[in-house]
Structure formats: structure tokens, C-alpha cells
């Protein structure tokens, strides 16, 4: 796995996270939370655009033509494959996964690769408010299932102890390896991960998960812009 593939994974996950946030813009528990969901959705969709824009500068764009036809070509965590059905899923993603991505962005900003050091810095300012939102809602208490799921997927996304993220850390491209990333995530959320050790034997280094990613048809159509095209008048 290259640094570009890691950045693509970050971009794809942020794109789907943004879409999932946006889906809750009229379903959150308060009007303020509705607006925050919409704003965070816009932020993360914007962040994904910036990250995609870094791929060429990294010297390699891992996206192939199969992105038009193969949902598994999107490097997203299973957590984002289908629309969330509970507010607890929203909060767990907001608090744990969004923060995990921010910690990785911090590792990029403090690493040695110029394009990442300069272009990603602004994201950390915007993500500060995502974190405040997620942590506050997390403190109100949510169902344990989504929370454990989010923690497991965050740890798997950081990668195994001696994997490629650790190699990128040793080479200086990333300021943190998997252990430091997890420690940083736990410190920010003021807790230890409520899950046991990961069995890395079935871990996929491209999808960065032990579970297969399944994107439903509607989500895949949204990613490709087909859902929007459905509403265009015929012949335009």
C-alpha cells in the first residue's frame, strides 16, 4: 500500500461520511443538530475533494475505470456502506470515526510530505467543531453496538502494528503509526477503546478492514451522480 492509496481511503471514507451526515440533516434530534449535520456533511465532502486533489501531486492516482462499475473499488469502511438507521450510529461515527480520520490528517500535516502538510492543515480547524459535536453527544449516552463497531473499524482502519502505516511512520511521511494514532484517538475521547484486540489474519490492506465493504445500490448510484441525473428532464 502506498501513501496515495491511504489518502484515497481517507478521501473515499470522508466522501461517504459526508453523504451520511447529510442524510441526517432533517432527522437529527434538534434543529441545531440538523444544521450541524448539514454543515459537517458539507465539510467532509469538501475535504474529500481536497484529498482527491492531492493524489496527482503524490505521483500516483490509484483510481481506475472500475470506479464506474465496481462498488468495491471505493475504499470505504463497512460502517458507511448503508444509510444509518439510528442516531447512535451517527454519533458513534461523528465521535470515533470522524476523529480517527482527523488524527490521521494530523499525522499527515505533521509528516514530511509537502502537499499533505500544506493542503490538509485547514481541515483540522473545521474538524475541531465536528469533534466537539461528536464528543458532546457521545457523553449523553448511546447504544453500545454502534459505538463498539465504530471503535473496531477505526482501529482496523489505522492498520496492523507492523503494517504499511507503521512503515510510512518510520519513513517520516506520517508523524504517527497505528499505536500512536490509537493513543491519540483515546486521549481525545478521554477513554480506552471498548473492544478487544483485532484478529488481523483476515484484514484487507486496501479496504483497511477485516470485513468486506458492501455499498448498497442507491449509495453507489449517489457516488456516481446517477441519483441526481434521475431528476434531469429527458433529453438534457
Amino acid at each position: 500500500m502506498s501513501l496515495a492509496t491511504l489518502v484515497l481511503s481517507l478521501a473515499d471514507n470522508k466522501q461517504l461520511l459526508g453523504l451520511r451526515y447529510a442524510e441526517w440533516a432533517i432527522r437529527a434530534p434538534s434543529l441545531e443538530a440538523d444544521i450541524a449535520a448539514a454543515a459537517m456533511g458539507l465539510d467532509d465532502l469538501g475535504h474529500s475533494r481536497v484529498l482527491y486533489g492531492c493524489l496527482e501531486a503524490l505521483g500516483e492516482d490509484p483510481r481506475g475505470p472500475n470506479r464506474e462499475s465496481d462498488p468495491s473499488s471505493y475504499l470505504c469502511l463497512p460502517y458507511f456502506g448503508r444509510p444509518w438507521t439510528s442516531w447512535s450510529q451517527f454519533v458513534a461515527a461523528n465521535a470515533v470515526l470522524d476523529t480517527a480520520f482527523s488524527v490521521m490528517i494530523q499525522a499527515c500535516v505533521e509528516g514530511s510530505v509537502d502537499v499533505l502538510r500544506t493542503r490538509l492543515r485547514k481541515m483540522l480547524n473545521e474538524e475541531r467543531f465536528h469533534f466537539l459535536h461528536g464528543r458532546s453527544w457521545l457523553r449523553t449516552g448511546i447504544e453500545p453496538g454502534p459505538l463498539e463497531d465504530a471503535w473496531t473499524q477505526a482501529i482496523e482502519w489505522f492498520g496492523p502494528p507492523q503494517g504499511e502505516v507503521e512503515r510510512l511512520h518510520r519513513e517520516g511521511a506520517l508523524a504517527m503509526g497505528p499505536a500512536e494514532l490509537l493513543a491519540q484517538l483515546e486521549e481525545r475521547l478521554e477513554t480506552t477503546a471498548p473492544v478487544g484486540p483485532v484478529d488481523w489474519s483476515g484484514w484487507d490492506e486496501v479496504q483497511r478492514s477485516t470485513r468486506p465493504m458492501v455499498i448498497d445500490d442507491r449509495t453507489f448510484a449517489m457516488l456516481r451522480g446517477l441519483e441526481e441525473r434521475r431528476y434531469h428532464p429527458a433529453g438534457t
Binding site: 441545531e32 443538530a33 444544521i35 450541524a36 448539514a38 454543515a39 459537517m40 467543531f129 465536528h130 466537539l132 459535536h133 464528543r135 458532546s136 453527544w137
Partner: peptide, 11 residues
């Protein structure tokens, strides 16, 4: 206050 800050920034 944390959530208020996030809401104020979003709104």
C-alpha cells in the same frame, strides 16, 4: 458549551 460552539459555528 462544546455543543453550543459546534452549533454556533454550523448555524
Amino acid at each position: 458549551p462544546d455543543l453550543a460552539a459546534a452549533y454556533a459555528r454550523a448555524t
